[in-house]
Design a protein around this nucleic acid. Structure first.
Lengths: 243, 243
DNA sequence: GTGCAGAAATTGGTTGGACCATTGAACCAC
DNA sequence: GTGGTTCAATGGTCCAACCAATTTCTGCAC
């Protein structure tokens, strides 16, 4: 019986400010790194209090869209558009070994799917980019005797980016962040990541061959080796995780 | 040459407020739905301006952790802890339909993995809980002629929770928020979700039978039907998404 | 006592104005 | 050039007041 009657919009000052600001950014074609108008100017032009402007900007800052530098100004940190969608993700806990394994299970799910999607959707340019990152990684691996975590990460990022779905990259970035609370010296395992090395190339080969299921299978193998490394490391310290 | 010198941390008033508030929540063991102290009280107790308190709360509100109701108070919307990690996901430029498809690809990856893990790890109690949610859903489906989105969601939540990895639920919860903008009248498809109905039970059966790969397969089928529904809906409106 | 309308208190939302702290540019000795 | 100094611009914080929505209390009618 009840037809869907959307609640009427009485006030939403700060939302309105953000909408106006998003429009302004598009109007002026501002990109990341560029400077936004002053809070005082925005307040004056939009006919709202400076405090309201600040609350609006605080929202964007919390979303990582904008960076405020005292004494300098407010700068765009990412591309903003009037029709973007936000899905705040907050991850609780996960500072211990169990948390590390938890992130790895997410990686297994997403990495496999992304590799498969990538095999279907990656364009020529993306494929070339992935191969470039792969070469860089292999070179770093040879040169620095196995310490190639940075290049390793960039390779995976390139795959996620080529999956055609930006959420993959963003979610995995969150996992990576959690990983990094540990990863500096992961569990004392010196050759951490060595075992996973060869699978990077096999994943790329399957993607280049447009073989989704093959790519998925290779990605799963890679994660399995990392998992093994982690478990091996856990056995090494057994007792050090008592909080 | 340059040793890594991390930037020095001077002040961060509102961050400090949030830290204190998170500590307070843990101290008092507050859960979702419960009321936080007044802005005025927080300002007085923490010896900061009410304005600063507001900026801090605005951050949490933007992250979906808290809900403010004018004239009533500020209420917890999710569990908060002092060590949470925030990673706002932003989908740029995509209209709602594209966003929906993007979240669905994440769901496909995670739902399949979670179902498989669940088949391996779910205990007796978790299994019973899942079955209870399943029964509730099926009952609602019969009674309300297909409108069972709330119970549907609770079923999936129960599966995620039983996967033994809290990250699954946390990530999918972020996706779900976006889903909810549509779920009311998703794309004008009247019988949206009907097709996925039978797979809920088959998923449960595979889990109960401790058959990880079977559970994964059924979960994939479910997502496939949802995807079809969505595409069908998209065809229905084709022209209405020109902004 | 019960029920309900209106008053009063509570609480988040907004405003305007003031001052502080940091930044960066211009300027000035050396 | 190098290194200070000054100074204006800008974000950060504070205060005091008022607005708007909500909740609670009060008192009257029955």
């Amino acid at each position: 019986m009840t037809d869907f009657l959307p609640p009427i919009q009485t006030t939403a000052r700060d939302d309105a400010v953000l909408k106006a600001l998003a429009g302004f950014v598009r109007q002026e074609a501002l990109g990341p790194g560029e400077k936004l108008p002053t809070e005082r100017i925005l307040a004056e032009r939009l006919k709202v209090s400076r405090n309201t402007v600040r609350e609006a900007l605080t929202r964007w800052e919390g979303l990582g869209l904008v960076e405020r530098r005292q004494g300098s100004g407010t700068y765009l940190k990412a591309a903003v558009s009037p029709d973007m969608l936000h899905m705040p993700l907050t991850l609780a806990g996960g500072n211990d070994f169990a948390g590390l394994m938890a992130t790895l299970e997410i990686r297994r799910a997403l990495e496999a799917e992304a590799a498969a999607l990538c095999a279907i959707r990656a364009g020529k340019a993306e494929l070339a980019e992935i191969e470039r990152k792969l070469d860089l990684m292999e070179e770093a691996f040879q040169t620095r005797a196995g310490m190639s975590s940075e290049e390793d990460w960039e390779f995976h990022q390139a795959v996620f980016r080529a999956s055609g779905n930006p959420l993959f990259e963003q979610i995995i970035a969150a996992m990576y962040e959690m990983f990094h609370r540990f990863w500096e010296h992961p569990l004392g395992v010196r050759d951490f990541g060595h075992a996973s090395f060869p699978y990077h190339r096999t994943i790329f080969e399957r993607i280049a061959a447009r073989d989704p299921e093959g790519a998925r299978a290779e990605a799963l193998k890679l994660i399995a080796t990392v998992e093994d490394d982690l478990k091996r490391g856990a056995a090494n310290l057994k007792l050090s995780d008592r909080r």
